[in-house]
Design a protein around this nucleic acid. Sequence first.
DNA 1: CGACTGACGGGGT
DNA 2: GACCCCGCCAGTC
Length: 111
Amino acid sequence: MKSKSENYFDSVFQVVKLIPFGRVTSYGAIANYLGLKSGARMVGYAMNASHNQEDVPAHRVVNRNGVLTGKHHFAYPEQMQELLEKEGVLVEKDQVVDFDRFFWDPTKNLL
DNA sequence: CGACTGACGGGGT
DNA sequence: GACCCCGCCAGTC
């Protein structure tokens, strides 16, 4: 089932899976890592399919503003914030506190 | 086949 | 600093 596009989603999933505990990243960063530069939206789309992938911590993926834009897509909106706070990432007003500090860039995972 | 939408980002006004 | 518009690509109506 599914189309060949599944491979594209899989690529996004793999990157998201690489996000360390207590870290967050942005859609644009993942898109850039995949070469989709402006395809940040596609990353969010892929995350929508991540519902079938428990190993994909979509809650660690926020927009470049550090805002939990996709919280509404979880089982319940508060789940995303709860999961992040459980990992030590404080969220206030649907926004990650010290986002720049917790930000994890996939292109820097080589470090 | 055509048009709109969408978990975004960047640039311009 | 806030607001608006465009682009990108894929999926759905």
